[in-house]
Every structure is written in C-alpha cells, then in structure tokens.
C-alpha cells in the first residue's frame, strides 16, 4: 500500500467531511431469538446531538512605548530557566527577577502571571503540578524583594507549551522554565 495514496485519501475524507452532523441514534426494539420485530423511527430523538462552541481570546498586543516590550530593556526578558527536577531560581536569572520586582513595586496597578512549564516527560496533569512549583518559586523570590501577593498570580502550563519530541538535554532545558506575563498581554 502506497502511503502517500493512503494519506491523500484520508485527507480527502477529512476535507469532504469537515462539517459536523448530529448523531441521531436509531431506536431499536430487541426481541432476540424470536421473530423479527419492527422498530420505531429514530428522527424524534436527538439526545446525542453535539453543538460546537468556538472560543478565541483576543489579547491586546499594542503599545510600542511599553518598557515591558522594549527589546533593549531587561523587562522584555520573560523566561527563567531551571535545572532538571529543580525549582530553584538560579543566580544567572537574579537580574531578571530583580528588574520585574522593581517594576511591580513602582507600578502598583500592574499584575503579573507567572506561568510554570515542564518538559513533556510524564502525564499532563502531573506536569501541571510540577510547573506550578517553579512559578511558586519565582513568586517567593519576588516576595522577598518586596512585591505584594496581590500583584502576583502563579499558574502552570505544565507540558502544554513544551517543544515536543526533544531528544537531547538542550531541548529539554528550554522547556523547564517560568514565563513572566503581565496582565493584559
């Protein structure tokens, strides 16, 4: 069997059939072992019909003069990387953490979301909890620098933003990080 033929047929099936239709089950009367019995029609029942919902966020990405977005400003650095199986903030990321602490202290209305991330090894929900540890670790570092709890939310993406199919440590390391995201971004 030619793989390309199979794939193109499969794709054609998918393209032709991309419109959803509700499942309307046939009603069946079972009189097993006996004579055939007529069943009623199934058009009145649509209990399995599925309605699709679309949800798309519309993030605000404007404001060119924002120091948070100036590539020459340290505040544009938003990634803090971690060692394997560790939630300790490494010394090399202290300047980044300090810069964001300073910004938050001078902008009391600003709120930051710390998004923890893991590599893809392990289950999604467990990795969500592991990523949370890293975001809490960065939060504690900000707290120690005087940032108030109400300006910080710690969440996790787990492995959802991980580059998949990593085969070496450099790749895995890119996934073990906390992303600093300001509210409204």
């Amino acid at each position: 069997m030619n793989n390309k033929v199979w794939m193109s047929v499969a794709l054609a099936v998918f393209l032709v059939a991309c419109k959803s239709a509700p499942v309307t089950p046939a009603k069946v009367e079972d009189k097993s072992g006996g004579a055939n019995t007529s069943a009623s029609t199934g058009t009145d029942s649509d209990a399995n019909g599925i309605k699709e919902v679309n949800i798309d966020s519309n993030a605000n990405n404007s404001d060119a003069n924002n120091p948070l977005r100036d590539p020459n400003n340290i505040l544009s650095k938003r990634n803090i990387y971690f060692d394997y199986n560790s939630d300790a903030v490494k010394a090399e990321f202290r300047p980044v953490v300090e810069a964001h602490a300073q910004y938050l202290k001078t902008h009391q209305d600003a709120k930051v979301i710390l998004q923890g991330n893991t590599d893809e090894r392990g289950t999604r929900e467990y990795n969500l909890s592991l990523g949370q540890r890293r975001s809490v670790s960065v939060k504690k570092a900000l707290n120690l620098l005087g940032v108030q709890d109400q300006q910080i939310e710690t969440v996790s993406y787990g492995e959802e933003k991980a580059s998949v199919n990593c085969t070496d440590e450099d790749c895995f390391q890119q996934n073990r990080r906390v992303d600093v995201v300001y509210q409204g971004e």
Binding site: P25, G34, A39
Partner: peptide
C-alpha cells in the same frame, strides 16, 4: 436463530445501526 431485528433508519444512521 439467535437474534432477529429490524431497524427503520435514515441514511445518516447507518454507522450507528451497524454498531448496534
């Protein structure tokens, strides 16, 4: 005969009926 059944369906119910 172990089972005998009738189903009255529309063409969109063919797969569901086959599964039944």
């Amino acid at each position: 005969q172990l089972i005998g059944m009738d189903y009255q369906i529309t063409s969109s119910q063919v797969r569901a009926t086959a599964h039944k």
